[in-house]
Design a protein around this nucleic acid. Structure first.
Lengths: 105, 105
DNA sequence: CCAGACTGCAACCCTTAGGTTGCATTCGTC
DNA sequence: GACGAATGCAACCTAAGGGTTGCAGTCTGG
């Protein structure tokens, strides 16, 4: 079972505030300050969340003038989904095998 | 964006020890006590993790004699993967749209 | 029926994670 | 070149999460 760098991604996705940030970024790229205007948390809190998201490759920073805007990397979500799907399928397959054995096939 | 009950699942999947438990359960159903024999944590710690995993539907308890064995629900993993995939695709689509607009198509 | 094993509950410890405020710094824009 | 807006850094607070130990309860299996 290669979980590899997968767990930190899930940890990053396991926070409501970060999903709010991702959702807000879905409306278009935005800086930490801009996001702070739309979400009920401070700019610094958002900066920390963005750091976490960037760490696991869910978001990328883009300098625009004196701002640092962030963009969601959708492919990382898709990639993570595929890896999770593979694991889920693996478990289904394994359980099916166990079931067959139990039923004496 | 309907994240619904998705976030707690990711939170549950964002812990290495819980993946160890899931991996161990992949070898076959097992009780908290049995798992404690294979993993470097106490039975009670494992019991807590199992409670979390059960809470989000990743695992189900099965009484066998005086034991309570746990089984991985692979379909929940697959289901979560599909929902994540859908979100990732949505983002890709949206970014593509933004890109087209930016390029003046 | 009784001993032993397994589960369940509770209290407690410690670290981390999410959040805040405040200040320093950088870097465009005018 | 200076002002202002934005970022970055640091200290701090609090709650929650992962872990432990200990004990009570329950229930099977011989």
């Amino acid at each position: 079972m290669t979980t590899g760098t997968l767990v930190p991604v899930f940890a990053a996705l396991g926070d409501e505030t970060r999903w709010s940030i991702l959702a807000a970024l879905g409306e278009g790229d935005a800086s930490a300050s801009a996001l702070a205007g739309r979400l009920p948390v401070s700019r610094q809190a958002i900066a920390k969340h963005l750091a976490v998201l960037q760490e696991v490759g869910l978001v990328e920073p883009i300098r625009v003038g004196r701002e640092v805007q962030y963009r969601v990397i959708g492919s990382q979500l898709s990639d993570t989904a595929r890896r999770l799907e593979a694991i889920g399928a693996e478990w289904d397959r394994r359980l099916a095998t166990i079931k067959e054995i139990a039923e004496g096939l």
